[in-house]
Design a protein around this nucleic acid. Structure first.
Length: 482
DNA sequence: TTTTGAGTTGTTCGA
DNA sequence: GTCGAACAACTCAAA
């Protein structure tokens, strides 16, 4: 008897209920991954995500080989490939992690029905989240739409048990099904632009565990304050690892809690609480996506359907390429392009700039992030953009418009981020680094900056753009029937 | 059913 | 330079 262990965004062996589920019966196990981007409809993994996936699959395969197994790779429609795999192995059981993306869970539901007819059980286990979106409910039985009550309710009921250890061995199936070669999946970019990614990241379970250990041993103590500073290494950088399931949220949660207990404090430190809150936002994002499956494409608040977004391919391109003329915005966008990642504060700032200063539809921003982020995650990306645009759950008030100069001065006071990612401004003194247009001609000349030539003039005036945004947002207020 | 309190991350203005 | 208030109204969640 053979069990097919179907890996998706759960590319690990540690604390993996589906792996344990597959091993729970005396049978051979065939671990498989099916590459089927055409089935992801409008959200096929972007180039940065594919780069990550390539290396993560490589890492998982190596881990499986150390345990007497290996990863079978296939590509095509999942339904067809699974049918073939079942035929090739004679398996009667399929085990996988539950997926929460609306389209993916539809595919899985359909598969479960068709497999049942053929006498094959499709077992899906929640390996991705701390909570079950169906189980956490408001007192009136509905889903939560505000973070704080959600987190309170979740904390009250949260029981995170001892994580499951990775298995020592996986028994091989009687016959190994055919496997594609990893490089044939075509996940790596054609041109070699991934150098920045390679420098910054180590996809796979080991890389994830190292990040968690760095958080536990050092960053957690300062997390409360340092996490808000893009010019410091204060954030956990666990997001891509969590997205691909190279580490479980349960493992992360338990490690933080146990580390705090070992520290001997009365209660978890401020840093630990702040971090767990961030982890809870990931839960909340999945909770929302599960209960409001159309939010990747449509605003949660209906009145935003009539929002007067501007269409400007030129402005959108300037934003994407880090040529808005606002150094803090441009630094973030160029870092994103080079490394597949951006600090959370910078994400908020560049998102506010696109949505409020440029009045460009948040979906254009979400699409760009989707294609460029190594941690692109439908739940998190959707929540983040809707929050910023003011049209989602717990949305930012309409008057919260980030000032890129103020944000730069507060969170990157010496312009370290700007100097690194916008090198043509590197020689400017701190005083002008976030607003080169205000610098005296002599200072610009001395720093080798010629505005409009070596670095663009601002594409909008922030003060004017702010007033324009306030007027536009006034149009979608409730009670305004226009 | 109605009421009440509260809501991640900001900026500007005027004292 | 620092500080508090204003920016408005809406929706959620619970009592």
């Amino acid at each position: 008897m053979t069990t097919i262990l179907w890996f998706r965004n759960d590319l690990r062996l540690d604390d993996h209920a589906a792996v344990h589920g597959a091993l729970s019966r005396p049978s051979g196990v065939a671990p498989v991954f099916i590459w089927s981007p055409q089935e992801e409809r409008s959200w096929p993994p972007g180039a940065a995500s594919r780069w990550w996936l390539h290396h993560s699959l490589e890492s998982l395969d190596a881990a499986l080989r150390r345990r007497g197994s290996r990863l079978v790779l296939r590509q095509g429609r999942v339904e067809d490939e699974l049918a073939r795999l079942l035929a090739e192995t004679g398996a009667t059981r399929l085990v996988a992690s539950r997926r929460f993306e609306p389209h993916a869970s539809e595919i899985d539901d359909r598969l479960a029905r068709s497999l049942m007819k053929r006498g094959v059980a499709f077992e899906r286990l929640n390996t991705a989240l701390l909570h079950d979106p169906e189980a956490v409910r408001t007192k009136s039985g509905g889903p939560f739409q505000v973070f704080t009550p959600f987190w309170r309710a979740l904390e009250a009921s949260l029981e995170v048990g001892e994580p499951l250890a990775a298995p020592r061995r996986l028994s091989a199936p009687k016959t190994w099904p055919a496997s594609a070669a990893l490089r044939d999946l075509g996940l790596l970019p054609a041109g070699d632009w991934a150098g920045g990614l390679r420098e910054q990241w180590r996809p796979g379970e080991r890389g994830a565990a190292d990040r968690l250990e760095a958080l536990r041993s050092a960053a957690l103590a300062e997390y409360d304050s340092a996490r808000d500073r893009p010019d410091e290494e204060g954030s956990s950088r666990l997001s891509p690892h969590l997205h691909f399931g190279e580490i479980s949220a349960r493992r992360v949660y338990r490690t933080v809690i146990e580390s705090e207990a070992a520290r001997g404090g009365e209660a978890p430190s401020r840093g630990a609480l702040a971090f767990l809150r961030q982890l809870a936002w990931r839960e909340f994002a999945h909770h929302l996506l599960h209960h409001f499956p159309r939010t990747p494409e449509a605003p949660l608040r209906r009145n935003f359907r009539r929002f007067p977004w501007r269409r400007s391919a030129r402005d959108l391109r300037a934003w994407q390429h880090g040529r808005t003329g606002y150094p803090s915005v441009d630094a973030g966008m160029r870092q994103l392009w080079a490394t597949g990642w951006m600090h959370n504060r910078t994400r908020m700032m560049v998102a506010s700039f696109l949505v409020k200063d440029l009045l460009i539809d948040w979906r254009r921003g979400a699409e760009w992030f989707w294609d460029t982020l190594v941690d692109a995650d439908l739940a998190n990306n959707t929540l983040g953009w809707q929050w910023c645009a003011g049209c989602g759950a717990d949305a930012a008030p309409y008057f919260r418009i980030f000032n890129p100069i103020t944000q730069g001065r507060t969170f990157d006071p010496h312009g370290a981020c700007v100097r690194r990612w916008v090198p043509e401004l590197a020689a400017l003194p701190d005083r002008w680094i976030h607003e080169p247009w205000a610098a005296p001609a002599a200072a610009l000349a001395e720093a080798g900056v010629a505005l409009g030539r070596t670095y663009p003039h601002p594409i909008v005036d922030h003060a004017e753009a702010r007033h324009r945004a306030l007027a536009a947002f006034a149009q979608v207020r409730q009670g305004d029937s226009s």
